[in-house]
């Protein structure tokens, strides 16, 4: 599975589950980059079929509707959808 990494200021473990075709996911990525935080992202639509169920199960743990973008912070907090205010608040930026 391809997990992309973006360097930046460490604000905890930030993992973005996104779709490569989605406009809100793109905006979320751009916003995280603008904030300058370190994060990783997975394009779930591009994950191999053999691993896709596993990834979806992981997303559902935090966001049962399996919608994108879903940001998981430190394996516990979760932000669903593109919401600048919520991202700023949770990341303290």
């Amino acid at each position: 599975m391809k997990i992309e990494h973006v360097d930046g200021e460490n604000r905890g473990k930030i993992l973005l589950y996104a779709l490569s075709t989605c406009g809100w996911c793109r905006k979320t990525k751009e916003f995280l980059s603008k904030l300058g935080v370190e994060y990783s992202y997975i394009y779930v639509d591009l994950v191999d079929d053999s691993e896709k169920d596993k990834v979806i199960k992981e997303v559902r743990k935090f966001n049962p509707r399996n919608s994108y973008p879903t940001i998981v912070i430190n394996d516990k907090e979760c932000i669903v959808g593109y919401n600048e205010d919520e991202i700023r608040e949770v990341l303290g930026k």
Binding site: L19, S20, T21, C22, G23, W24, C25, V44, D45, I56, N66, S67, Y68
Partner: peptide, 18 residues
């Protein structure tokens, strides 16, 4: 995104849904 999905799946699935 719609066109990518059309090539990938054969139909214009919403670009923001899996």
């Amino acid at each position: 995104g719609l066109l990518v999905n059309e090539k990938r799946y054969g139909y214009l699935a919403c670009p923001c849904r899996l």
